[in-house]
Amino acid sequence: MRYRTYALLVSVLVVSLLLLSLGNRGGGARRPGDLIAVVITPLETALTTIHRSAVGVWSAYLVWKSVRRENQALRSEVERLHVRSLQVDETQKENLRLRRLLALRDRLPLSTVAGEVIAKEWGGWVRSVTVNRGRSDGIARLTPAIVPEGLFGRVVEVRARAAVVQLLNDPSSAVAVMVQRTRTAGVAEGDPMGTVRLKFMARDGGIQVGDLVVTSGLGGVFPKGLPVGWVTAVEDRGSALFHYAKLAPVADFARVEEVLLLTGQTGADLFPQFAARPET
């Protein structure tokens, strides 16, 4: 066995040396290499082709992976930018609202406190919002709350750092008003459906659809001249002593996020301040 192993080694060495010397002689002596090359060249070509294909597939896979990763990164970037864009948009809108509120505040001849709506009660029984201003900010019960468009409601409950504002369309809300055009007095009341109705207005007042209704200042709760709403329908109740009408409030209760609380008192008619409000 051992002899065979060494015999094999010697044979291999002899063949190798023979090949080497044949190859080194030149002329036709390169034949051994050429003969082997005849066999291995096609195999080599095939192996190289397979290898290149495998490398190509692998490269394609790597590119696909990289593109996928890049795609995911871009998607998340787009998502992030979209959120950012929404935030910017929201900030711009807030900025606009606050500018309008500030402009109104500067025009009014009485002291005010700006408040942010922090909660809303929107059921049929009660319609109110909670603002982040309370007793510590000088807010008292029945303080009027306004928005740049006009009357919003009044404070019905005051806490240390918050106040509950009853909206104009709350079923238990009643505000002394008058038709701005004819100066005919009446009462604007909320109803369970969330609309505002005009009651107790003299029949000879000449009320019309499209008339603007403002606070009359009677009762001392609201200053005179705050826009309340537009007459959208007049109800004719035959021989009734008073006119009844439906109002579209000037304030969009569902969208209000900031209000002005009127902490000061004034006997002046505030309507010119609202009438002078620039349209935006």
């Binding site: 291999v12 060495l13 063949v15 023979l18 090949l19 080497l20 044949l22 082997i36 291995i40």
Partner: peptide, 23 residues
């Protein structure tokens, strides 16, 4: 030996050199 020989033929060097050393 076999792989060395193939290597020699494929690489175009001294045929038999790698066959010997690898053997």
């Amino acid at each position: 030996f076999v792989m060395g020989l193939i290597q020699d033929a494929a690489a175009g060097g001294f045929v038999g050199a790698q066959a010997l050393t690898k053997a």
